[in-house]
């Protein structure tokens, strides 16, 4: 099964995502430039971390209007899998593929640290390899990870099991300790922690392996 990693000007976790997918998830991983208007035949689209367009406007706001986004929306509408990590999550909210918004961290500082997460829903294509209520460690590295949404949206996310990852020790002020959510259909996921940085014991944590293995299972 195949995956595409979208490259915006200012993406900087695209290589890390490609390596993680290649090693743990997909047979073929394409890098797709944001100016393309069509995706290659893929099962999974990943919007990687970074600072697309420098995040000089709202994080992800300009990337969400890139030419490639229309075909990503079409892919999602067809039920194809879409993942946004960090800046990718911000892009997905700006593109309205996911509800809510990522605001500046409550402490107003960029934060790079390990985050303890609870996997809230293991019935998704992204989390099946984790045990229910499993705790896992995946690092965060962001300035704008404070998830916000109105009360109705938050209630719906809770009721429909759309909250996938929750912080055990909320680092950024996110509503309901949200670290990652899916859309209602469950095929689009956004998360602030970086699973692609947590797959190798040499570099530290391995809490992201479950994520890539879940995807590998979903793709076969």
């Amino acid at each position: 099964m195949n995956a595409a990693v979208i490259v915006f000007p200012g993406s900087n976790c695209d290589r890390d995502a490609v390596c993680a997918l290649r090693d743990h998830t997909a047979q073929k991983v394409y890098r797709v430039w944001h100016r393309e208007t069509a995706l290659p035949r893929v099962d999974l689209v990943v919007l990687p971390g970074g600072f697309s367009y420098g995040d000089y406007l709202r994080s992800g706001a300009i990337a969400a209007r890139s030419p490639i986004m229309a075909s990503i929306k079409a892919h999602a509408d067809r039920g194809g899998l879409v993942v946004g990590i960090c800046n990718g999550f911000q892009v997905l909210t700006e593109a309205h593929l996911l509800p809510g918004a990522l605001m500046r961290n409550a402490g107003l500082k960029f934060l790079c640290k390990s985050a303890k997460l609870r996997v809230e829903n293991t019935q998704t294509a992204f989390t099946r390899a984790y045990a229910d209520q499993a705790q896992t460690d995946i690092p965060i590295a962001h300035h704008d990870g404070n998830y916000c949404a109105d009360e109705d949206t938050l209630k719906r996310l809770e009721d429909e099991g759309q909250i996938t990852f929750r912080y055990l020790d909320n680092p950024n002020g996110s509503a309901h300790d949200i670290a990652g959510i899916t859309n209602r259909a469950g095929n689009v996921l956004g998360m602030m922690p970086h699973p692609e940085r947590a797959i190798d014991p040499l570099t530290g944590e391995t809490g992201g392996l479950g994520f890539f293995r879940s995807l590998a299972g979903a793709l076969t």
Partner: peptide, 12 residues
């Protein structure tokens, strides 16, 4: 903690 120490995924 204000510096991204792990991007590029090769930090040991």
């Amino acid at each position: 903690e204000q510096y991204d120490r792990h991007v590029m995924a090769d930090t040991i």
